[in-house]
């Protein structure tokens, strides 16, 4: 026997989400059938609303419901610094720190020919334009510590430095509260290289 079309379609839709295979999708689909109609309606509407109301900020590329986004509109923030991240969710992580007061810029990925991402596929040209007509004097690059994250950082540095803007990169090393004895060799090596005078 085959699933009725409505369930089959629902399973297929769930499977489009990341990290969900056919078993989980089937479980979620059957759970959805047992849910209250009100809840299902709300669920469907939030999906649509998220797609309809959210878009990327025309300045920094962050996800927002108003353009420009909350951070770009905030005149109290330090307009002289831009922190460059791979994904909008990285901004969320950095904002939790409650310490950084500057602006952001989202690349929406890293340079990786393997995944079909070259310089023109990332949100880089708008960043350069943004720098040309602003008072920014430091660009902090916060791409991940992967080989691709490194090449993206080096690429940006080459584009930005000639304009006389300072380019910095986040430090690598031990995580706070961790024991040295449990750290792997590569992390330790980075930490020793990046040591600071006391």
């Amino acid at each position: 026997m085959q699933y009725p079309e409505a369930i089959a379609k629902l399973i297929e839709s769930y499977m489009k989400l990341p990290g969900i295979g056919s078993k989980t999708a089937t479980r979620l689909a059957f759970f959805t059938i047992d849910m209250d109609e009100e809840d299902v309606k709300e669920f469907a509407e939030s999906l649509l609303a998220a797609k309809r109301d959210l878009h990327y900020c025309s300045i920094c590329g962050n996800i927002t419901d108003e353009d420009p986004c909350e951070i770009c509109r905030d005149a109290n923030r330090d307009q002289s610094k831009i922190l460059v991240v791979e994904q909008p969710k990285d901004i969320m992580a950095l904002e939790k720190m409650n310490d950084y007061q500057g602006l952001y810029h989202v690349l929406h990925g890293v340079l990786s020919p393997m995944d079909g991402k070259g310089p023109e596929d990332l949100n880089i040209a708008p960043l350069i334009k943004r720098l040309q007509k602003s008072e920014v004097n430091e660009v902090i690059i916060a791409t991940n510590a992967s080989p691709e994250g490194e090449s993206t950082a080096m690429y940006l540095a080459r584009l930005i430095k000639p304009a006389g803007i300072k380019v910095t990169r986040l430090a690598h090393g031990l995580s706070v509260g961790s024991d040295i004895e449990y750290a792997d060799e590569m992390t330790l090596q980075r930490a020793v290289e990046g040591r600071q005078e006391m």
Binding site: G118, M154, Y155
Partner: peptide
Amino acid sequence: QAKDLVYLEVLSDQ
């Protein structure tokens, strides 16, 4: 399909 030589230089460096 691509034309940016700066990125090639970055990859060469790495």
